[in-house]
Design a protein around this nucleic acid. Structure first.
Length: 421
RNA sequence: GGAGGGAUGGCAGAGCGGACGAUUGCGAUGGUCUUGAAAACCAUUGAGGUGAAAGCCUCCGGGGGUUCGAAUCCCCCUCCCUCCGCCA
């Protein structure tokens, strides 16, 4: 949730929201409502103070004075009800739209749609197209079965089988081992959460259409463990010296992929259900950009360990999610398509998400600041299905075998996987 | 799924319509005493908003209601505990 006060007072902040595509009339409306809300709040509190004083006097009053005092207090109550209604009406107008306003983009974020990203750097050499794309290769190797999966569950579902399962579990172990070495605590969170948490974590209402909901229970399946990790300190008052708090969630993720019909229908590049290890940090405000760099560095370390050629890009405003002030994507070379495609990403939400989650931190020093909203960040350690896709193409050999990257071998005991007879 | 009981400040635990933002104990912080520590004693000690400050407003699981006035009464929801049933 945006900072309404800052939206009103800080021109750069407001511009950042507009750059993200916020409706200018909505912003103008909010900016005009903010002083009204404050004024109505002061008016209401003033009357309330009078009423409180009058009510307290009744308790102390002599019995014969009571009736007159109660009558007087009754009048104040009428005025208070009006003042409260006036305030609530303005607050309701604000609440109707405020959750739709995105987190303002950081000044370093380029303008434009998804093609207007800024290339930060590349690593490794892109290879030539292999004989088989990932879907073909995986089918031949007995790694995935889609025919019956589609029959049973629909498109974008697959059975993962055989050594691919061992590779998947090795990737999980490898990712968890890597992030653990950087101070992230492994977590297996609930994947089913109340819709209330979807809202607090910033996914509702803006991304509602991408989520599987269970209306009977007012719950949803998470599209990422980020949702649950954001709930880990909901309403908490953390201590400055305990930050950063770093968690690595491992969970299945569920996405409706609405609006992607016809895109990436082959294989397991884009599926409704996949497993992912996700990093999530709670940071002091002044350190969050360092934390952002750290998360990106870990992502690069993981992809380098898998021996995949990649580049890092700065995502432009038009492709930035509602909650992110800035996002960097790692894109791996996908030989069959002859282009780089997303494998992981890291985002800094600043205090946008923490405001709804009410996650604050305070200094232990007596004269330090009272409490401040923390900054939250997240980044993909490893999205398993998609990582398998990149490995299937980049490590596929001319003889039809698959070479397991050295970093994964300790976790699965496999070096070379040969095609079935 | 059925029947009861509960949710109060970091923790424990009172309060059950008016001087309660909340008794008390523990913990924590500061001080006295001490070579130092412990003990004892004294003081301080929840949070959010607003304000330059004094102050004012809000918060006793969450939401509504009754009342001049609600931690306290009523309704709904959530969670926890006990018993019964069911179950990986």
């Amino acid at each position: 949730m945006i900072d309404l006060r800052r939206l009103t007072d800080d021109e750069a902040y407001r511009q950042g929201a507009l750059r993200k595509g916020a409706d200018p009339s909505v912003i103008d409306n909010l900016v005009s409502l903010e002083p009204q809300l404050r004024e109505a709040g002061v008016a209401r509190d003033t009357i309330r103070a009078e009423a409180n004083t009058a009510n307290k006097a009744i308790g102390k009053a002599a019995p014969e004075e009571r009736d007159a005092k109660i009558a007087a207090a009754g009048e104040l109550k009428g005025k208070l009800t009006e003042a409260e209604a006036a305030y609530d009406a303005i607050a309701a107008q604000i609440n109707d739209v405020i959750l739709h306003v995105p987190n303002p983009a950081h000044e370093s974020v380029p303008d434009g749609d998804e093609d207007h990203f800024e290339l930060l750097h590349t690593h490794g050499e892109p290879g030539d197209a292999p004989p088989h794309d990932h879907a073909d290769f995986a089918e031949r190797m007995g790694f995935i079965e889609t025919e019956h999966a589609v029959q049973m569950s629909g498109s974008r579902f697959a059975y993962l089988m055989g050594d691919a399962v061992r590779l998947e579990l090795a990737l999980v172990q490898y990712a968890l081992a890597t992030v653990s070495a950087h101070g992230f605590t492994p977590v297996i969170p609930p994947v089913l959460v109340r819709n209330e948490q979807m809202e607090k974590a910033g996914f509702f209402p803006t991304d509602r259409s991408t989520v599987y909901e269970l209306p009977e229970d007012d719950m949803s399946l998470v599209g990422t463990s980020e949702v649950a990790l954001a709930g880990l300190h909901r309403g908490d008052r953390l201590r400055d010296e305990d930050l950063p708090l770093r968690y690595a969630g491992f969970s299945s993720c569920f996405r409706r992929e609405a609006g992607t019909y016809g895109k990436d229908t082959r294989g397991i590049f884009r599926v409704h259900q996949f497993d992912k290890v996700e990093m999530f940090s709670y940071s002091l405000p002044e350190n969050s950009w360092d934390e952002f760099d750290k998360i990106q560095a870990i992502e690069e370390e993981i992809v380098q360990g898998l021996e995949l050629p990649y580049r890092v890009i700065n995502i432009p405003t038009g492709d930035l999610g509602a909650a992110a002030a800035k996002k960097h994507d790692l894109e791996v070379w996908l030989p069959s398509e002859g282009r780089y495609r997303e494998i992981t990403s890291c985002s800094n939400y600043l205090e946008f998400s923490a405001r709804r989650l009410d996650t604050r931190t305070r200094s232990s020093e007596a004269d330090g600041p009272g409490s401040r909203l923390v900054h939250t960040l997240n980044g993909t350690a490893c999205a398993i299905s998609r990582t398998l896709v990149y490995m299937f193409e980049n490590h596929q050999q001319p003889d039809g075998s698959f070479v397991v990257p050295a970093a994964l071998r300790p976790f699965c005991g496999l070096e070379v996987i040969n095609p079935p007879e």
